[in-house]
């Protein structure tokens, strides 16, 4: 019974990670690749960690280490991806030609963008 759970969770994790990797390989744009880096990989890592905890028991040294790795993944992966997406936007890497919305550019090009470039909150209060 435990074996079935472990194999199922490992299969789910590996499948989701594979989909993320194929997305990174196939997507046409840096920003779409960052999307494929962030969410499917985090979602693919967590079932593998749960499978490891189930296979080795939660009170062994595997459980604690898997918990630390899960917390690090959940905290640091969005942070790193956000920093990377911001850097990619600020050096001006072009979007895919099929992209339909660019909210940061729309906010920067707004009528009150000159005193607060980038942040829209004070401008909204003025207007």
């Amino acid at each position: 019974m435990r074996l079935v759970f472990v194999i199922a969770l490992l299969a789910v994790g590996v499948a989701v990670s594979t989909s993320g990797a194929v997305g990174i390989l196939r997507m046409p744009d840096v920003y779409l690749r960052i999307q494929c880096s962030s969410k499917p990989v985090t979602l693919g890592a967590l079932p593998v960690l749960v499978a490891l905890v189930i296979a080795k028991g939660p009170v062994s040294s595997y459980g604690g280490r898997a918990l630390i790795v899960a917390v690090l993944l959940l905290v640091m992966n969005p942070l790193a991806t956000h920093a990377l997406a911001r850097a990619a936007y600020s050096v001006g890497i072009p979007m895919w030609s099929g992209a339909v919305v660019d909210q940061a550019a729309a906010r920067a090009a707004g009528p009150t963008a000159a005193p607060h470039p980038g942040g829209g909150q004070p401008a909204d209060r003025e207007g």
Binding site: I24, V30, R33, I34, S37, A80, L84, V91, I93
Partner: peptide, 9 residues
């Protein structure tokens, strides 16, 4: 940036 994304993953 593509390379850094792939490297992070």
């Amino acid at each position: 940036c593509d390379r850094i994304v792939a490297l992070n993953t």
